[in-house]
Simulated assay, not measured.
Amino acid sequence: MHRLNRDDIEQAARRIYQVMPATAQYAWPLLAERLGCTVWVKHENHTPTGAFKVRGGITFMHWLKHVHPDVKGVVTATRGNHGQSLALAASALGLKALIVVPEGNSLEKNNAMRGFGGEVVEYGIDFDEAREEAARLADVHDLYLVPPFHIELVKGVATYALELFKAAPDLDTLYVPIGCGSGICGVIAAREALGLNTKVVGVVAREAAAAKLSFDAGVICETASANTFADGLAVRKPVADAFAIYGAEAARIVSVSESEIAEAMRVYYTDTHNLAEGAGAAALAALIQERETMQGKRVGVILSGGNVDRSVYAKVLGSDSASDRR
Score class of each variant (00 low, 15 high):
residue 312 V to A: 15
residue 141 H to T: 00
residue 88 L to R: 12
residue 26 Y to S: 10
residue 51 A to E: 05
residue 82 H to T: 13
residue 271 D to N: 14
residue 315 K to P: 01
residue 2 H to S: 10
residue 173 T to V: 15
residue 98 L to E: 11
residue 40 W to C: 11
residue 306 G to V: 11
residue 133 E to Q: 14
residue 215 F to G: 02
residue 302 I to L: 15
residue 318 G to I: 12
residue 297 K to M: 14
residue 287 L to A: 08
residue 105 N to K: 04
residue 247 G to R: 06
residue 273 H to W: 05
residue 221 C to Y: 06
residue 321 S to K: 06
residue 188 I to F: 00
residue 177 P to V: 04
residue 140 V to H: 12
residue 221 C to H: 15
residue 71 V to L: 09
residue 160 Y to W: 04
residue 167 A to N: 04
residue 325 R to Q: 15
residue 134 A to R: 08
residue 217 A to Q: 07
residue 227 N to F: 02
residue 95 L to N: 04
residue 19 V to E: 11
residue 236 R to C: 11
residue 239 V to M: 07
residue 238 P to C: 00
residue 160 Y to P: 00
residue 266 R to W: 06
residue 167 A to G: 04
residue 62 H to T: 15
residue 193 A to K: 03
residue 169 P to D: 05
residue 188 I to Y: 00
residue 183 G to K: 01
residue 55 R to M: 01
residue 246 Y to R: 05
residue 224 A to E: 15
residue 268 Y to C: 12
residue 157 V to T: 12
residue 132 E to P: 03
residue 273 H to E: 13
residue 234 A to M: 03
residue 121 V to R: 08
residue 65 K to V: 15
residue 190 A to P: 01
residue 168 A to N: 02
residue 226 A to L: 06
residue 324 D to H: 10
residue 257 S to E: 09
residue 326 R to M: 15
residue 97 A to P: 07
residue 1 M to Q: 09
residue 309 D to W: 03
residue 181 G to S: 02
residue 245 I to C: 00
residue 243 F to M: 03
residue 39 V to P: 09
residue 276 A to I: 08
residue 82 H to C: 10
residue 322 A to D: 14
residue 278 G to P: 02
residue 80 G to D: 00
residue 47 T to M: 06
residue 147 P to H: 11
residue 44 E to W: 02
residue 148 P to Y: 04
residue 302 I to V: 15
residue 200 V to D: 02
residue 38 T to G: 12
residue 292 E to M: 10
residue 267 V to K: 06
residue 308 V to Y: 12
residue 129 E to Q: 14
residue 178 I to R: 08
residue 46 H to A: 13
residue 249 E to S: 12
residue 14 R to W: 10
residue 22 A to K: 13
residue 231 D to V: 09
residue 251 A to K: 13
residue 285 A to R: 07
residue 125 I to F: 13
residue 6 R to P: 01
residue 12 A to T: 03
residue 63 W to Y: 15
residue 19 V to A: 05
residue 262 A to H: 12
residue 292 E to I: 12
residue 83 G to L: 10
residue 113 M to V: 14
residue 3 R to G: 06
residue 287 L to H: 04
residue 67 V to M: 11
residue 138 A to V: 11
residue 224 A to P: 05
residue 290 E to D: 15
residue 91 S to Y: 06
residue 249 E to V: 02
residue 50 G to Q: 05
residue 191 R to V: 07
residue 32 A to G: 14
residue 14 R to S: 14
residue 269 Y to S: 13
residue 13 A to H: 00
residue 166 K to W: 10
residue 7 D to F: 03
residue 202 G to W: 05
residue 167 A to V: 04
residue 265 M to N: 08
residue 115 G to I: 05
residue 104 G to Q: 05
residue 253 I to L: 11
residue 168 A to G: 01
residue 8 D to M: 04
residue 19 V to Y: 07
